[in-house]
Amino acid sequence: MSAWPKGYGLRLLETVDSTLNEAARMAPGLTGPVWILAREQTAARGRRGRAWVMPRGNLAATLVMRMTEPPEVAALRSFVTALALFDACAAVSGRSEAFALKWPNDVLLNGGKLAGILLESAGTARAPGHLAIGIGVNLADAPPAELVEPGAVRPVSLLSETGTAITPDDFLPYLAAAYAVRDAQFTTYGFAPIRSAWLDRAARLGETITARTGAQSTTGRFETVDAQGNLVLVTPTGRTAIAAADVYF
């Protein structure tokens, strides 16, 4: 098991409505970053307010920290977290070649969705805010395919795809240690090396994909992720940078 990283706290919960909600409740008293792990969530959520199916045995965790940087910089921690998840999954399974990263915030395993990341922030110009990074990983089980929207990547679990059996309590130290390493790299050297490492692991780079935001869809060749974390597509009308969207293959 990986050693717990220095400087990071840990809060273990048997049941909670959402680890993201718990992060917001803890935020006023934070003195340093804290990982929150729940064995059961009763009101888990994903991007755009979607429900997140979280069978017991899967990882439901949130890293909460004080906001010490502009929101546009803090948002890049989704890439830091994705790389840490990739590193942790490769470490516990021994199969790095099976994993890939899907913009903006998913980890894929054998082409299926293994994990998702959701960032939430709060605060005002007068009061220091906090950043919460919610993470869900299908360690033991995956939700039925009929529960995901049409065209979405099929859900998979680490156990079913690799035969790796690991509990959330045992997986979290790997993730926390990997995050600490990637975060130190980000803090010291900026986004450039994180961006490069992320692109090395990107799913469908160079291929045609579709990015949807509400009723608007943009289809083009996935060229890169730019220095601001935007998805860059080459379309018939030119290069387009997209700040937020759902990506479909």
Score class of each variant (00 low, 15 high):
145 A>D: 11
146 E>I: 05
153 V>Q: 14
153 V>I: 12
167 T>P: 03
150 P>S: 09
162 T>P: 11
162 T>D: 05
137 V>D: 02
157 S>Y: 12
158 L>P: 10
162 T>G: 09
134 G>Y: 01
156 V>R: 14
161 E>W: 05
172 L>Y: 01
170 D>S: 07
173 P>H: 04
136 G>C: 09
171 F>G: 00
162 T>M: 08
158 L>N: 10
138 N>F: 05
139 L>M: 02
143 P>Q: 06
160 S>L: 10
163 G>H: 08
158 L>D: 15
138 N>G: 05
156 V>S: 01
137 V>P: 12
172 L>F: 02
173 P>I: 05
155 P>C: 09
168 P>V: 04
134 G>P: 00
151 G>E: 09
155 P>Y: 04
169 D>L: 13
162 T>N: 07
133 I>L: 05
164 T>H: 09
160 S>H: 15
148 V>A: 15
163 G>I: 01
162 T>E: 03
156 V>F: 05
169 D>T: 03
152 A>F: 09
165 A>L: 13
133 I>K: 01
164 T>K: 15
159 L>C: 11
163 G>A: 12
141 D>Y: 12
171 F>V: 01
169 D>F: 04
156 V>N: 05
164 T>F: 09
143 P>Y: 07
142 A>N: 06
140 A>M: 14
157 S>Q: 09
149 E>T: 13
162 T>S: 12
137 V>Y: 08
137 V>T: 05
162 T>R: 05
159 L>N: 08
146 E>Q: 15
166 I>H: 11
136 G>N: 03
137 V>N: 03
135 I>S: 00
166 I>D: 03
158 L>A: 06
139 L>D: 03
156 V>Q: 04
162 T>F: 07
164 T>G: 04
143 P>G: 06
140 A>Q: 12
139 L>T: 09
147 L>V: 08
155 P>E: 01
151 G>K: 10
144 P>L: 04
157 S>L: 13
135 I>A: 01
140 A>Y: 06
162 T>L: 10
133 I>Q: 02
166 I>Q: 02
146 E>M: 02
136 G>V: 00
136 G>H: 01
140 A>N: 02
139 L>S: 02
167 T>Q: 02
158 L>T: 11
149 E>V: 15
149 E>D: 15
142 A>G: 04
152 A>K: 10
170 D>Q: 03
147 L>I: 10
152 A>L: 10
160 S>K: 14
155 P>Q: 10
162 T>H: 11
144 P>C: 06
167 T>F: 00
165 A>E: 12
164 T>S: 08
145 A>R: 13
158 L>G: 08
140 A>F: 11
168 P>H: 01
160 S>W: 04
165 A>W: 15
165 A>Q: 14
147 L>E: 15
143 P>K: 15
170 D>M: 02
144 P>M: 06
157 S>D: 11
154 R>L: 15
168 P>S: 07
173 P>C: 08
171 F>M: 00
134 G>E: 12
159 L>T: 13
142 A>D: 05
152 A>Y: 06
163 G>N: 07
136 G>A: 03
168 P>K: 01
167 T>K: 00
148 V>H: 11
143 P>H: 13
142 A>I: 12
156 V>D: 04
152 A>Q: 10
167 T>I: 08
